[in-house]
Design a protein around this nucleic acid. Sequence first.
DNA 1: TTCGATGTTCGGTGACTATCGAACATCAAC
DNA 2: GTTGATGTTCGATAGTCACCGAACATCGAA
Lengths: 116, 116
Amino acid sequence: MRHKDTDPPVEQLHLPDVMAALSDPTRLGLVRALADGEERNFGAFCAPVAKSTLSHHLRTLRAAGIVHSRTEGTRCYLRLRRTDLDTRFPHLLDAVLTAATQDAIGTHVTLQPHND
Amino acid sequence: MRHKDTDPPVEQLHLPDVMAALSDPTRLGLVRALADGEERNFGAFCAPVAKSTLSHHLRTLRAAGIVHSRTEGTRCYLRLRRTDLDTRFPHLLDAVLTAATQDAIGTHVTLQPHND
DNA sequence: TTCGATGTTCGGTGACTATCGAACATCAAC
DNA sequence: GTTGATGTTCGATAGTCACCGAACATCGAA
């Protein structure tokens, strides 16, 4: 449950890290699932990978500054850092999300109907 | 001199591959150096890596469909496939180039003053 | 034809990555 | 407390990647 590494501050977002984090289909799926700006429970994501693998992907997204995570009890809530990303890299996230949606990249990641 | 693998056609450009190709600072530098749309000689690029490493990076960019290469004699000329990229992934290249320029990513790749 | 320039390819190395299952830590609930 | 749910971390594995020097292939020029 402990993730000691805190989210990187806005000014420290690094383009190559962001690009690398967004080059994996599963992570793109996670980002797409968060694209509406809503906070979502980690457990709400369904992906055909092991729990530990999903946790690794989220750590990667967090380290790149793409998502913010908040712990409440034993649960972990995620939110896309859209404002921060737009500030540092204008239009980048939009372009990626548009492209991913058009190409149906990351559709293997789904959301459980009503899990937070 | 022989690169049998041909450039992938527009409709086969794959977002994750493009993102991965654009997540390396040296390759971002190469793309930036081609950003004006001009065709450039391979040998015109100066980067602090071995010749073979540079060749590898160009193969990666070619495989991802980001650059087109044309051989003339023993020389190799490169051009950014901007139109193709813009068609498949609108605004993506612009956003990446803008971000890379603002963050000075890839500035270790330079162009020789007057080498084609 | 011999040389030099230009890139590509090969073999190898060290680092990183996606993946898994198992073990662990934390908290809620009973 | 004991149990169950929730995520994280660990150790291992297989694959990929950036990187280098060396060898190679191709072509132009002397």
